[in-house]
Computed example of a mutant assay.
Amino acid sequence: MDASILLVGGDDLLPTLLERIRDVVTCTLEVVPSPSEAVPLIQAQQPDVIILQSNQLESLALCRQVKEQTKLAWIYCIVLETSLSGLSDDRRQYLLQIEARASALENGADAYLWLPQTTATGEPLEREMLIQQDRLLKSQILCGLRMVQTHRELIRTNDILSAIALSDPLTELNNRRALDWELPRQVQNSRMRLEPLSLLILDIDFFKTINDTHGHAVGDRVLQLISSRLRHNLRFRDTLFRYGGEEFVIILSSTDEMEALLVGRRLCRLVSDQPFSIDDTVNLLVTISAGVAALRADDDPKGTSLLRRADQYLLRAKAEGRNRVIGFLDDCEEELGTRG
């Protein structure tokens, strides 16, 4: 069984319990003598099941600490009691068992097991009793492992669904929803690290004409080919999104506006210089236009104003002839040229 168990207990418990666990279930076993020593191991390895000895002072505190952490709360915690008196009909002993069980569950334990080592008179337990104890121990461990497996399958499913929700099915790029999540994070990182941040909005020129002339299947293929060409010609720190229709957004981290303009112009050349081979009979020359904007101190934390500013420059690029990149620095050059 592909699972791991962490056993936390003293010398009075460990030798016997280790053998019993190995007999009832096959998995990876780690052992630590005290709850305080277990903490770094739990953080690092995140075992599936933790078995804690109840008579150790810090056991219940450790159980509570595990359950209070979201990233660890799925770990199945079993509190094991062996220190109460042996089997008897004593009413006081019964109440002690109930109290110990309640305390364990209140502190986050998923299960509480009472496995006495002897009878009330101190004699060893009968073989049949030990067999039934081992059966109970095995069933409780397997119950925990089933719950952990269910949790992990849910996490995997959620990861798949999240990936689908954030991916554009046609181009396999990040989609607009992914941009809405990523851009505020990039803005925050830029401001925390005092690093520049720029953004490019790209649009395929005359894309409607491509659809009208060659059909939407060819238009979809153009989107796929351009996506691939852009993706394979970006720097490792750049993040590409399909913003919608024939528009794309690229977040350029650690990039000022001058660098962003150079990146945009390079991408324009890469798209326009080589035709796109749709099939054996159709080769299309395609160009793109782009708007560039760099993050400013007065931009909102979601990046909405940054995105809007880049979009405005994109509109100018298309109005001024397409197949070009326009940004704030172009305004500065025009102003200087006018003054000169």
Results as ranks from 00 to 15, higher is better:
residue 99 E to D: 11
residue 222 V to I: 12
residue 237 R to P: 03
residue 340 G to N: 09
residue 324 R to C: 11
residue 60 L to M: 01
residue 95 L to I: 11
residue 32 V to C: 06
residue 45 Q to D: 14
residue 308 R to A: 12
residue 29 L to Y: 02
residue 87 L to D: 03
residue 98 I to R: 13
residue 180 D to M: 01
residue 339 R to H: 07
residue 237 R to G: 11
residue 103 S to R: 13
residue 201 I to G: 03
residue 241 F to S: 05
residue 105 L to D: 02
residue 168 D to H: 02
residue 74 W to L: 12
residue 127 R to P: 07
residue 253 S to G: 10
residue 261 L to T: 02
residue 306 L to M: 04
residue 259 E to C: 11
residue 232 H to M: 11
residue 284 L to P: 01
residue 128 E to D: 08
residue 298 D to T: 12
residue 324 R to D: 01
residue 329 L to V: 09
residue 192 M to I: 15
residue 269 R to M: 14
residue 235 R to S: 12
residue 85 S to P: 13
residue 332 C to V: 14
residue 250 I to E: 00
residue 31 V to E: 06
residue 82 T to V: 08
residue 139 S to N: 15
residue 114 W to F: 09
residue 14 L to N: 06
residue 173 L to N: 03
residue 67 K to S: 05
residue 118 T to V: 12
residue 120 A to S: 06
residue 69 Q to M: 13
residue 307 L to M: 09
residue 101 R to G: 04
residue 224 Q to A: 03
residue 71 K to N: 10
residue 293 A to K: 06
residue 308 R to W: 07
residue 178 A to I: 13
residue 223 L to P: 01
residue 21 I to A: 00
residue 321 G to H: 07
residue 115 L to R: 03
residue 190 S to A: 08
residue 116 P to G: 01
residue 323 N to S: 15
residue 91 R to G: 15
residue 230 L to D: 03
residue 39 V to N: 05
residue 316 R to C: 07
residue 259 E to W: 11
residue 173 L to M: 05
residue 20 R to D: 10
residue 92 R to A: 14
residue 276 F to K: 00
residue 313 Y to N: 08
residue 336 L to N: 11
residue 192 M to N: 10
residue 324 R to P: 04
residue 335 E to P: 12
residue 287 T to Y: 00
residue 193 R to C: 09
residue 79 V to R: 00
residue 300 D to R: 05
residue 187 V to I: 10
residue 313 Y to D: 07
residue 56 Q to I: 04
residue 118 T to C: 13
residue 221 R to C: 12
residue 141 I to K: 02
residue 225 L to H: 10
residue 78 I to Q: 05
residue 305 S to C: 11
residue 336 L to T: 07
residue 85 S to Q: 12
residue 54 S to G: 09
residue 250 I to R: 01
residue 116 P to W: 01
residue 168 D to N: 04
residue 131 I to M: 09
residue 27 C to G: 04
residue 108 G to C: 03
